[in-house]
């Protein structure tokens, strides 16, 4: 199925959880924040949170800034 990750249309496995997706992308869960369909999701929800087709996911992190 296709979902939108950080604005890009991306092919992912059916009903993939956020945790699994992050692992697949090589991201350290402790360093990112996830917004699912405009709602910020707590880390504790990620293992259970399965994506559906056309979901919008924002994965953000901290970078240098003034």
């Amino acid at each position: 199925m296709r979902v939108y990750i950080n604005g890009s249309e991306t092919e992912v496995a059916e009903k993939i959880t956020v945790s699994a997706l992050l692992t697949q992308m090589g991201l350290d869960p402790d360093t990112v924040v996830v917004e699912h369909n405009m709602v910020i999701r707590a880390k504790s929800e990620w293992a259970q949170l399965s994506l559906a087709a056309s979901d919008k996911l924002e994965i953000v992190t901290f970078v240098g800034g003034g």
Binding site: I5, M25, E58, F62, V63
Partner: peptide
């Protein structure tokens, strides 16, 4: 110490800025 919030770059997994900021700083 100030930091910015950005979308994770899917192409190149950036190193995390937080690992360079001492833990006792106010972020």
């Amino acid at each position: 110490v100030t930091v910015a919030v950005r979308r994770v770059d899917m192409a190149s997994a950036d190193e995390n800025i937080l690992t360079h900021i001492p833990k006792d700083c106010v972020l």
